[in-house]
Design a protein around this nucleic acid. Sequence first.
DNA 1: GTCGCTAGTCTACACGCGTAGACTTCTGGC
DNA 2: GCCAGAAGTCTACGCGTGTAGACTAGCGAC
Lengths: 218, 218
Amino acid sequence: MATSRKSTRVDTKRSRTQEEPDCTPPRRRNAAETRQAILDSARAAFTRAGYDGVGVREIATGAGVTAMLVNRYFGSKESLFAEVVDVTLSRPGILTREITTMGHDVAALARHISAALVDATSPTGTPLDGFLIMLRSASSPQAAAILRDKFEAHFEHRLVPALPGDAARERASLMLALIAGLQLMRQVIAMPSLTGADPCTLEKQVEALFRLLIIPNV
Amino acid sequence: MATSRKSTRVDTKRSRTQEEPDCTPPRRRNAAETRQAILDSARAAFTRAGYDGVGVREIATGAGVTAMLVNRYFGSKESLFAEVVDVTLSRPGILTREITTMGHDVAALARHISAALVDATSPTGTPLDGFLIMLRSASSPQAAAILRDKFEAHFEHRLVPALPGDAARERASLMLALIAGLQLMRQVIAMPSLTGADPCTLEKQVEALFRLLIIPNV
DNA sequence: GTCGCTAGTCTACACGCGTAGACTTCTGGC
DNA sequence: GCCAGAAGTCTACGCGTGTAGACTAGCGAC
């Protein structure tokens, strides 16, 4: 049994080395790089399967290290998750990218957001990591608490101030709800009505909804 | 060890008996009643914690039986979940209730749905079991597959035909997405922006969104 | 050259999971 | 009264989980 375990470990190490055989020197024992590798592996894993659906051993294997090292760097699975959510939300996303680069043409803004959203949630598009992590981790109470804090903090400071008019917080929250609901139905549950819908029709409907939430006075 | 296990079992049985000491005769060994008790317990548990968040032992305890009996009646946890989703969606819900009893006054319909939704997702309201089960179980691929089939089947036959005009399937799906997203943000994640929002303001915003989805020609 | 520090690993624990098969206990029909 | 069969339970298996503590090995400074 010890033999098989040992061979597994050797394979793992070898695979990491062989992934980039001559591009970079083996560069082992680099704390910063290893930490980043764990973070990347964790983000991919949480996006794919959610907080409860992935184990630290799996994350560690994806980074080419051992499970215990994950806990040595991040303290616990929960802390790791919090950091993953934080860095994911810090990167420019669909809303912040569109809104911060907008002029004051709300119609164009609604069109851009809608197009980006429909494209991102299509089978071939690049999914929105932040929301996907949330949708797949919401069932865990601990993960939900982390998500609540991080989402509130990030969007309170970046989305709400960008929305003119009254009830900006409510409208911003409803935009998040709309994005989350659409992505849930289209990507996570994958309802045929939405995955098979004509993108153009869908885009028009979604655009109308967003226009309603962006324009100040309904 | 055997003693403590035995005492646990006795306690469980006694607690079920004592819950209704004189209302009904003990009435043990009733298959239909037991099956229903398991179904009820499972629905409550799945609503609270989702497919992955609850174990068959917990469901069994809630029904006053043993874990193995659950599998004897329903085959597996997965089959039990499918049946729970099915019966939950079959009961009249927020959409079917409002839409089937509506006249042709779409404005009033949007107002009713919005009010019911905001009320149901408020901390004091009765939550919508069907959607809550979905939101908390979406992370499990097996549960997601079941939810996709059941949701598609139920709403394809009940909601889509009730919507007049073009692109009814897309609009119906977007209504589901909106409900799911709102409930996710308000109840599961519990974002302060939404839990603490003024119900009246929220209702107006949500009503406008629904009106857009109900009215045939945007 | 060697020594200390830190990156990284191994083993182990205590638990919870879904479920398979053998077992016990109650009840309705004759 | 009794017995077949159904209702229900017990024990057990194999696996996977998060993480704690002791251990090994490689790199940088002297």
